[in-house]
């Protein structure tokens, strides 16, 4: 069977994807600098705290004696002794705020353009899962774990990808909306009320961030697992497929919701 080039990702999608990557990184990093000014969230069930995000040692880890000096900064420990810290993450709220509220614009604009593009180009048909996808996604996961040996249908995005990629669009919208709800709770109080108040909106904003981190880990893991041909597709736009696969994929691209 002959191999051929298949034009997988349009230029616009590739730009949206790669613009989002550093912007999302800056948003999460600056968001953490803000969160750390009041890091209150824990995983508590039935009165028992299982997990407190970021114990205090995370903020100012003391450098061991062999740690290079140029990679550390001078500080004091709780007892007031002079020590060197590997990094200092506390008391950087102002810095977190001005980065966050600058790049929030890029994140929002890029996200809105991406969603608009998906709608207008018809690309959404490849991404939005049909109901059957929720069943199929289980088979995809089993196949990824080598527990299912059958052949999956040829499709631009498999069922698990469809669910994941649609979820991040929803999560992105949720981030912007809960973000504005926390940012302007007096002015846009209708939005804050929609998320059951200021504290709840902040809580959702935080947990959606964890959702993004979870997506990121799985996404990068899968990209590494699937390999170069697929990864290169997000840069060049092209992927090498068989003639047969290409004709199926191109028929789907011009066709109905898959």
């Amino acid at each position: 069977m002959a191999n051929t080039l298949y034009k997988k990702h349009p230029l616009a999608i590739r730009w949206f994807h790669w613009i989002n990557f550093p912007v999302l990184f800056i948003m999460i990093w600056s968001g953490l600098l803000i969160y750390w000014a009041n890091h209150v969230f824990t995983i508590t069930l039935f009165g028992h705290t299982f997990f407190k995000f970021f114990p205090d040692t995370v903020f100012t880890p003391v450098a061991p004696s062999w740690w290079p000096e140029w990679l550390s900064s001078a500080g004091t420990d709780a007892a007031g002794h002079h020590v060197r810290h590997i990094w200092e993450l506390d008391f950087r709220l102002a810095e977190g705020l001005y980065w966050h509220f600058f790049f929030a614009w890029l994140f929002t604009i890029n996200g809105v353009l991406y969603a608009t593009y998906l709608l207008l180009s018809g690309e959404w048909r490849q991404i939005v899962p049909r109901l059957i996808a929720f069943k199929e996604a289980i088979i995809v996961v089993l196949a990824d774990l080598h527990l299912w040996k059958g052949k999956l249908p040829v499709r631009k995005y498999n069922a698990a990808q469809q669910i994941a990629y649609t979820s991040v669009v929803v999560m992105g919208a949720l981030m912007v909306l809960t973000g504005v709800a926390i940012y302007k709770p007096a002015q846009q109080s209708w939005l804050t009320s929609l998320f059951f108040g200021y504290s709840t909106a902040r809580f959702i904003h935080f947990w959606t961030t964890l959702g993004f981190l979870g997506f990121f880990l799985v996404h990068v893991g899968q990209v590494i697992r699937v390999g170069w041909n697929n990864f290169r597709g997000m840069i060049t736009g092209y992927e090498i497929v068989t003639e047969e696969e290409r004709s199926i994929l191109e028929a789907q691209a011009g066709g109905s919701h898959v």
């Binding site: 080039l5 699937v226 041909n229 697929n230 992927e239 090498i240 497929v241 068989t242 696969e245």
Partner: peptide
């Protein structure tokens, strides 16, 4: 799509 083994000598691309 991922399990393609491209044989360089016969690769028309």
């Amino acid at each position: 799509m991922s399990e393609l083994n491209i044989d360089a000598s016969s690769n028309p691309l």
